[in-house]
Design a protein around this nucleic acid. Structure first.
Lengths: 193, 193
DNA sequence: TCTTAATCTAAGCAACTGTTTAGAAACAAA
DNA sequence: TTTGTTTCTAAACAGTTGCTTAGATTAAGA
């Protein structure tokens, strides 16, 4: 009986992700979303309830987007520590080339919203945990290979690398390439060989 | 002949800094500023021209505020590397205790505005340079004392510490204390003794 | 006391904010 | 073809945005 949707909610969500990514949570308006998604505000509300809910969904979608994208460098690594450098370089390159000039959506949201919104904070926390797991698994493989010192505290180092990644997201927007290279080299040197 | 100002522009600027710090650039409205500074919008405009100019002035004021505040731990250090840890801990503590829950205004602005606004970007860049100088001077003193390895690349390490500080500002809003301690310890371990 | 220039208050501007609503349009079972 | 349910369009809602303006107020020199 009912009328069929003229759009794919999953597609709409991915488009919304890019709009929020570019403009931030508060500065993204429903008129912008309406235009960019090509669907009416009413439809946005009927699919996602409200702006806040839509954004929480976007954060989860972003996590998937990253896991299936640039993070594959780390996820599929066989434990070669240089893959961490490759990841950092790919990240910086994506920002500075203009491909993803806004850096990391999670870093931006942490700066903008932080802990002031519990649901958003929870989504950020989940992303951080995912990143920590990814780094931890890589470091563990590296340790098994013997490339990384056997007495290294992998959990501690994984947390360390998460914050380094977020710092890199910020700095990529301010520093130039050579300064970022200095940072990346220092991080690589800091891993206990 | 002319009427005297009923407010001190310098005082108003410092109040404005705190409003922007808490709410971010775009989410701070002139009505909020009017209320918090206790002066009329007209007066804000006659003293600072417009919101954008006011914010650029605020960023410069923030730099001074930090230099005369928490950064004194680094500036007055005699080269003891543990002062870096003290600074990181003081920073994290200020965020998590609710004293400055918004972390670093420059980090937040880098995330929000980044390179999209040349004048703001310039102010962020200046702040980064100041931070780099402060770290460099401390490392240099440390090297002279013999605490830091004589063949360490101080410029590179100073840049590294700047990005670590910005990463810490973000992570303090998402991670809990123990995770942040792991980060700080890793950073301290990474300095070439 | 008058003049002159800057400051103040308070209202107003058009554009935009998130959200809602009334009514038309589309689908498929009856 | 009618019916019932959902989706669509497009307008409207009240509140907020950055910024401007008209007119009253304050100061000190002439």
């Amino acid at each position: 009986m009912p009328r069929k949707k003229q759009y794919d909610p999953e597609e709409a969500l991915e488009k919304a992700m890019h709009v929020f990514w570019q403009n931030g949570y508060r500065s993204t308006s429903l008129r912008m979303l309406e235009k960019e998604l090509g669907i009416n505000q009413f439809s946005i509300y009927s699919s996602f309830e409200n702006k806040h809910n839509l954004f929480v969904s976007v954060l989860k979608r972003y996590q998937k987007f990253m896991r299936e994208g640039i993070l594959q460098i780390l996820i599929t690594s066989d434990g070669n520590l240089d893959d961490i450098r490759k990841f950092f370089n790919a990240f910086v390159n994506a920002v500075q080339s203009g491909k993803t000039p806004s850096g990391c959506l999670v870093a931006n949201t942490a700066a903008e919203v932080g802990a002031s919104d519990p649901e958003i904070h929870e989504a950020l926390s989940e992303y951080f945990n995912m990143m920590e797991d990814i780094f931890f698994n890589l470091l563990e493989r590296s340790q098994q290979k013997g490339e990384l010192s056997p007495d290294a505290d992998l959990h501690s180092k994984a947390k360390y690398l998460v914050t380094c990644t977020e710092g890199l997201s910020l700095s990529s927007k301010v520093m130039d390439q050579s300064n970022l290279d200095a940072f990346i080299s220092s991080v690589m040197d800091s891993l206990p060989k």
